[in-house]
């Protein structure tokens, strides 16, 4: 079976600033794959190339065997994408938000209402469905975005830091939904995070990025065992990134602060 997502020697630079270098990834069907790394590691850039938002040369990135450089539109049909920012439209109701994406993915008219209802239900939003998203909590907005991404029944769900800024209850709410959906549909999930305890709990395999390069890859257990008994994934992270969280974030810090602020403004 073809890999749901595959990159070979992926390289991406913003003018002369290299964001991702020599990256090889191969996701297995049906797994939750975690892309880990400190701020500015290149996680979002990698995801933007895979989702066709940034250009890739032919032969470097495939989704379900389709080259993203050559079959952009078909690739998009197979993807469900939730960006790092909270991106639901606050001036529309939950149901309208999801229905828009059902239309944009050409879910047939006869099935549309049912598809929208069932994803809203699966995300625990049935009761809130007809309120505008401006009244939603951060956790609800995230679940709404999952509903938007899932209504087209994607083969690969791509989530950029799905739990950032959420409280512990909202976090586990989001993860529970992700696992339920995966159990039921068998879709592959590609997720980024810099929360190591989440990666340990929820990811089947992870790759650790630092300054655009892959530093380690494997199951969380493999990575921890390799470092020695009692090692946590946090230790693995520190071992491979070599320095503290704050130092490694320097390059990306300005942008990241801006993004965080925008997110805060939207949630607020």
């Amino acid at each position: 079976m073809t890999d749901p997502v595959r990159t070979q020697g992926l390289h991406y630079a913003f003018s002369d600033h290299v964001a991702v270098a020599e990256l090889d990834l191969a996701l297995h069907p049906g797994e939750v794959f975690g892309l880990l790394g400190p701020n500015g590691a290149g996680k979002t850039t990698t995801i933007r190339v895979i989702t066709t938002l940034l250009p890739a040369p032919p032969g470097v990135v495939t989704v379900a065997g389709l080259d993203v450089a050559r079959h952009r539109r078909q690739v998009r049909r197979l993807l469900g994408y939730v960006p790092q920012q909270l991106s639901a439209d606050a001036s529309l109701s939950g149901r309208e938000n999801v229905a828009l994406f059902a239309r944009l993915f050409d879910v047939p008219r006869r099935e549309r209402a049912d598809a929208v209802d069932s994803v809203l239900d699966a995300m625990g939003l049935t009761e809130a469905a007809d309120r505008t998203a401006s009244t939603y909590s951060g956790g609800m907005v995230r679940r709404l975005e999952l509903a938007q991404a899932l209504v087209s029944a994607p083969q690969v769900l791509v989530l950029d830091e799905p739990t950032v800024g959420l409280d512990p209850v909202a976090r586990s709410g989001v993860w529970d939904r992700i696992h339920e959906v995966r159990r039921e549909t068998g879709m592959t999930v590609l997720v980024t995070t810099h929360a190591m305890e989440e990666a340990e709990l929820h990811c089947d395999r992870v790759a650790l990025l630092h300054r655009g390069r892959k530093r380690a890859e494997g199951t969380p257990t493999e990575l921890m065992d390799a470092l020695g008994p009692d090692a946590t994934l946090d230790d693995v992270f520190r071992h491979h990134t070599g320095d503290t969280l704050t130092q490694s974030g320097q390059e990306g810090s300005m942008r990241d602060v801006r993004t965080a602020r925008r997110t805060a403004r939207r949630v607020g």
């Binding site: 933007r48 998009r76 993807l79 994408y81 939730v82 790092q84 991106s87 925008r262």
Partner: peptide, 15 residues
């Protein structure tokens, strides 16, 4: 664009 909405729209099968 700043809110990520544009990115989401661009990752739909819409030219």
């Amino acid at each position: 664009r700043d809110a990520g909405v544009l990115a989401k729209l661009l990752v739909t099968p819409t030219p």
